[in-house]
């Protein structure tokens, strides 16, 4: 798998909405109040409206993540990003994340697969790529290292 760095994305999550036990697992929604992204080809901020991570804790304790964020580049283009992801790890590590403690991201699995949509011609290359990301859950929100799949 050949990849190259696309950007680092920091998102800030606010108080989660605990929907609770649903037929597929335990549903929790983490609204996103903002954030920043930076790479050699694009940089900007995360818009708060319509950005959130729809989380589902499955019966096998794997956390499914369904993130949707709107990115605004420094030159005004809007980019819709969606990514599906999985997070799991040893119970003590996952518990520490839940308490908001700093945890070495190498000790758990947190991977996502972002896709992008934009109408802005300068960023049209994003419509034509598939990406993979590793996440680092911090107390204020995850940091994603996003790589373009070459």
């Amino acid at each position: 798998m050949n990849t190259r760095l696309l950007m680092m994305l920091h998102v800030n999550v606010t108080t989660p909405q605990n929907v609770g036990a649903v037929p597929h697992g335990t549903r929790r929604i983490a609204p996103i109040s903002g954030g920043v992204f930076e790479g050699t080809r694009l940089r900007g901020t995360v818009l708060p409206g319509g950005s959130a991570d729809w989380l589902l804790r499955r019966a096998d304790d794997v956390l499914e993540m369904d993130l949707r964020v709107t990115l605004r580049t420094h030159d005004g283009a809007l980019i819709s990003m969606r990514s599906f992801g999985l997070r799991h790890g040893p119970p003590d590590v996952i518990a520490a994340i839940g308490r908001g403690e700093p945890v070495n991201p190498a000790t758990y699995y947190f991977r996502t697969t972002p896709r992008f949509q934009t109408a802005h011609p300068a960023y049209g290359f994003l419509n034509r790529l598939v990406a993979v990301a590793s996440g680092d859950r911090r107390a204020e929100g995850p940091i994603y290292t996003i790589h373009e799949l070459l």
Partner: peptide
């Protein structure tokens, strides 16, 4: 094969 439930792939 439960490991397949827990991984992402390309």
């Amino acid at each position: 094969y439960a490991f397949l439930n827990r991984l992402l792939a390309v």
